[in-house]
Amino acid sequence: MKNLPFLISGIFATLLFSWMGVVLGTQIQYGDLERSSSELDENGNILSDETLFPEPLVGLAQIGEEVYTEMGCSHCHTQQVRKKGMGSDFERGWGKRQSVARDYILQSRVLLGSYRIGQDLANVGDRDYDRNWHMLHFYNPQITSPNSNMPPYSFLFDYKKIKGQKSLDALDFSMDTSNLYKPEEGFEVVPTTRAKALVEYMMSLNQDYELPEMKFTALE
């Protein structure tokens, strides 16, 4: 082992090999994926008069995606449904089908996540939670999910004295049967824009559409 140029090129080449395979290979296969209609015409072209999926986030939900990133929610939540038979993603109702690459092409930063300390959120917008449920859950998860270890995000809310009439968007605490988290008499909890954005983002998260390469998984 004395031939330096040989050694250095070997060291360089091994990594080049995996870079070409893994990174470049994926880019070649997926790099130019576009939005698509659920079905294709007989020539395999996109039906341009139908809705194209995935649909872009609109309005507040876009800001919500940023809030999701800067709070580091993806340390505890994934946004990817595995195929039927892998764990119980499907049985838990986390999605109607497996997630595929096309679902992610509009995300500026992909939020796949790698831990499931909480549930998968790829289709959370599809579950029957209303906006107030999400608000209460973010304000303090103990209200909706006692003993959860999801952190409270109370700093996304204003706790303030009611002046005259109660604010329209003040949180409705009627779910809080324990009475532990309700604001005191004469006070209210109002979401900031960031909290509203985050909730809009939650409501808009779903992969509730079929794609040419992936149909809904049959129930049984």
Partner: peptide
């Protein structure tokens, strides 16, 4: 670079 190509690149980095 969009979508999961990003995830793969990121995974490649973290793994390396």
């Amino acid at each position: 670079v969009r979508g999961t190509v990003q995830s793969v690149t990121h995974g490649w980095y973290a793994h390396n």
